[in-house]
Nucleic acid binder design. Structure first.
Length: 750
RNA sequence: GGGCGGUUAGCUCAGUGGUAGAGCGCUUCGUUUACACCGAAGAGGCCGCAGGAUCAAUCCCUGCACCGCCCACCA
């Protein structure tokens, strides 16, 4: 180690990280003296991802905790891994193909999935390597992937168990559909964007004309004129005096030339538009509900590519939705049926992966019933078995669960876990959305099975066909905390009556202790992990949930690569070093909802590292010519000066406070205290005093011991925050007293 | 429409029922054997606005304003 120049992270970090990896201490099985386990399951980053500030912050938080607990003597396990990220990954590879002028359909399913695996093997580990650069002390020997063999088994097992409990059903519903990704989406995979559009007031002529001349039609207001081709009713509120006498009559649906009834339903808002609303059960959720209540037929007019289908009049078929809207407006104008147009602003759902406008279409999908599972998810939070930090997120979590709708878990993409569902070919009619003019088709015959049945149990002589659908990515990530620990693998010795028995990892490390994540996936992920854990393993998956702040730019804007507004944590590491980067992040941690990230704090971290570096040099130089017999402790000596006593007392207090803050997940506070103490109490005051004491022969030896004592205590306290530099310095100090222990496993001083 | 968070020094943010703090920036001075990625000293704040309970509020309560986030089936 070269103390003659400022601290150089580049010379240290790789070397130290290799030392740690070689030591094997990231794997808690090698922590011989450790007793109680402490576990964190990393929120698996997407395989397509590259480390961003959010990851860096979260990794810093988790690593501080893991290192802290490891030093405290816990069997600390931080399990790393990656998520296959169905739609996201598929679109990355699709984009790559597009450059070659191909689509996934050109390749076919098998070849395409092969392409993705190839891509995964080439660049899928990038983010994990980046985490290492930050100093993350994960147990890499336990690295998992949501599509590795064991994990696949967990996904199928979960589905089958849910199915047998009656919590899964297949049904034709109005679902969110991304026309670009060609798949269904769950409600949580939508992002709403405000759009300025219009409210069109359209005249629907009454089929049975009244004597009074001005009652020839009823006017409906809509933001989606194009879906009128699929209208099967006009609805009004039963209390609306304006239309009371029209209920039960029919109108002649313009353009489509069908007669549809006027119905009354309390769900209709009298104040919206004209108070009369067109009902399109196949393309709107509310309308679907109305349709169910009034037994209306469903006419699907938009297909899975976002085009008008064959259920519409011929002139509109095959046209994209946006164009169909224009054409229909023109045609209504031409027919004199457009009453008026108003400006209107409302939120339009977009695909969270590709930003396309999401259509609501009628489709047969698999759903998880939320009624039971929401109870599972709520119970441990209500009883305090799971605690949120900050507390307020617990309420948000519960609020969502109270009204959560059934979860659509099937996706029509190719990258993911294929549903373990097999259909009888003979009885299965080829599924095509445009065939669904009317509902009430009976379910096809299918069976749920991990392996393809040898014989079709229905017709006895067909080759059964597996469902082409894959699971929603979140269905598999919901199993993360226990799937990564071995669930549902059966150990012959432990299996009980054929039921899944926990593996030893599951026994030892489950439930995990802390989950640290971002607030935007509380419902998407956290809630689902909780009910999955409760339902499948009978235990909540973690005890504490840390919801960390979102990192935004100093100007208050979202950090985004495409906007060019992001800070790249790897650049920070390059520029300031990993410790400084961690410092810059930890320094800004508080309970606030956002962190407006300023690079100055990273610079401060770099300077702090240098301060530690130089103070260490001083302490080492001051030791020259001294040998320290082990056990020779300065404490209690009669010769302690006032300064000695003060710094020792200060350290004691600091140890208590830092411990307390880390335990309360107040990492920013802990770091501020450490910084203040090291720099101003220790370096500015004590070291300066020590210089004088060293010059005094009577105090010299005592002071040398004091410096070493205080310094090593501080290195320990700093280690979870600044692991590289503290470990590097620790090695030099170890050389002094013959100790070869790594700092990562030194005992936490409290 | 509902809920939540924020409003403190030029910037980013801590903080406490009783003289207001940090990092960065700024000013002045300082190369004495850890460190100029430093040290010493300093400037800079009606702690968003208006009320209320209190001996006393930046901190507690109420209302308001502005910024931001989330949820919701206004078609």
């Amino acid at each position: 180690m070269n103390f003659d120049s400022p601290y150089n992270p580049k010379e240290t970090e790789d070397k130290i990280y290799q030392l740690w990896e070689k030591s094997g201490f990231f794997n808690p099985d090698n922590l011989k003296s450790a007793k109680k386990p402490f576990t964190i399951a990393i929120p698996p980053p997407n395989i397509t991802g590259s480390l961003h500030m959010g990851h860096a912050l979260n990794a810093t938080i988790q690593d501080i905790l893991i290192r802290f607990k490891r030093m405290q003597g816990f069997k600390s396990l931080w399990v790393p891994g990656i998520d296959h990220a169905g739609i996201a990954t598929q679109s990355v590879v699709e984009k790559k193909l597009k450059k070659e002028g191909k689509t996934r359909f050109d390749l076919g399913r098998e070849k395409f999935v092969e392409e993705i695996w190839k891509w995964k093997n080439e660049s899928g580990n990038r983010i994990l390597d980046q985490l290492k650069r930050l100093g993350a002390s994960c147990d890499w020997s336990r690295t998992r992937f949501t599509m590795d063999n064991g994990y696949n088994a967990a996904v199928l097992e979960a589905f089958i168990q849910y199915y047998h409990k009656g919590w899964i059903y297949r049904g034709e519903r109005v679902v969110n559909w991304c026309p670009r990704c060609q798949t269904s989406l769950s409600d949580l995979e939508l992002e709403y964007q405000e759009e300025k559009t219009h409210l069109w007031y359209i005249k629907y002529p009454l089929a049975l004309r009244q004597a009074q001349g001005d009652n020839n039609y009823i006017i409906v207001a809509t933001t989606r004129p194009e879906t009128m081709l699929g209208d099967t009713a006009v609805a009004i509120n039963p209390k609306d005096a304006r239309y009371k006498n029209l209920v039960g009559q029919n109108v002649l649906l313009p353009l489509a030339n069908r007669e549809i009834p006027i119905i009354a339903d309390r769900i209709i808002d009298i104040g919206f538009g004209t108070g009369a609303v067109k009902v399109t059960p196949a393309h709107s959720l509310v309308d679907w509900q109305i349709g169910q209540a009034h037994q209306l037929p469903m006419i699907s007019v938009i297909d899975e590519r976002g085009r008008i289908n064959d259920n519409a009049p011929e002139i509109y078929r095959g046209i994209k939705v946006e164009e169909a809207r224009k054409k229909i407006i023109d045609d209504l104008n031409a027919a004199g049926l457009m009453e008026k147009i108003e400006d209107y602003t409302h939120s339009v759902p977009k695909c969270y992966r590709c930003d396309s406008t999401v259509e609501l279409i009628l489709s047969k999908q698999w759903f998880v019933k939320m009624a039971e599972l929401a109870k599972f998810a709520m119970a441990p939070v209500k009883t305090g078995k799971i605690k949120f930090h900050p507390k307020r997120w617990g309420k948000i979590y519960l609020d969502w669960l109270k009204s959560a709708r059934d979860w659509c878990i099937s996706r029509q993409i190719w990258w993911g876990h294929q549903l373990p569902v097999f259909f009888c070919q003979k009885k299965q009619e080829e599924f095509s959305i445009s065939n669904f003019q009317f509902s009430n088709k009976n379910d096809e015959e299918f069976i749920i099975s991990i392996q393809k049945p040898k014989e079709c149990p229905f017709c006895k002589n067909c080759e059964m066909k597996q469902s082409e659908d894959v699971f929603d990515t979140w269905f598999s990530s919901a199993l993360w905390p226990f799937a990564i620990l071995g669930w549902p693998a059966r150990l012959a010795s432990e299996s009980v009556a054929g039921r899944p028995a926990p593996t030893s990892d599951l026994k030892t490390y489950y439930p995990t202790d802390v989950l640290s994540t971002a607030r935007d996936i509380i419902n998407l992920w956290v809630a689902r992990m909780v009910f999955s854990g409760e339902a499948l393993v009978k235990k909540p998956p973690f005890r504490e949930v840390i919801i960390h702040a979102t990192i935004i730019t100093k100007e208050g804007r979202r950090m985004s690569k495409s906007l060019g507004t992001g800070t790249d944590p790897l650049e920070l590491i390059e520029k300031y070093g990993a410790d400084a980067t961690r410092f810059g992040l930890a320094w800004q941690i508080s309970e606030a909802q956002d962190i407006r990230f300023g690079e100055e704090d990273t610079l401060a971290g770099k300077k702090f590292c240098n301060k530690i570096w130089n103070a260490s040099r001083f302490v080492l130089l001051a030791q020259s010519g001294v040998s320290h017999p082990t056990g020779d402790h300065p404490k209690g000596g009669k010769s302690l000066t006032a300064a000695d006593k003060k710094i020792l007392a200060g350290i004691k207090k600091l140890e208590k406070k830092v411990t307390k803050h880390i335990e309360k997940y107040e990492f920013g506070k802990a770091l501020h205290l450490l910084y203040e103490f090291f720099w101003h109490q220790y370096a500015d005051i004590y070291i300066e005093t020590a210089k004088q004491q060293l010059a005094d022969e009577k105090l010299k030896s005592q002071t040398q011991k004091m410096l070493l004592e205080v310094h090593t205590s501080l290195l320990k306290l700093l280690h979870p925050f600044l692991p590289f530099i503290t470990e590097e310095i620790w090695r030099t100090f170890g050389a002094l007293n013959g100790s070869k222990n790594l700092l990562i496993t030194e005992k936490w001083p409290n």
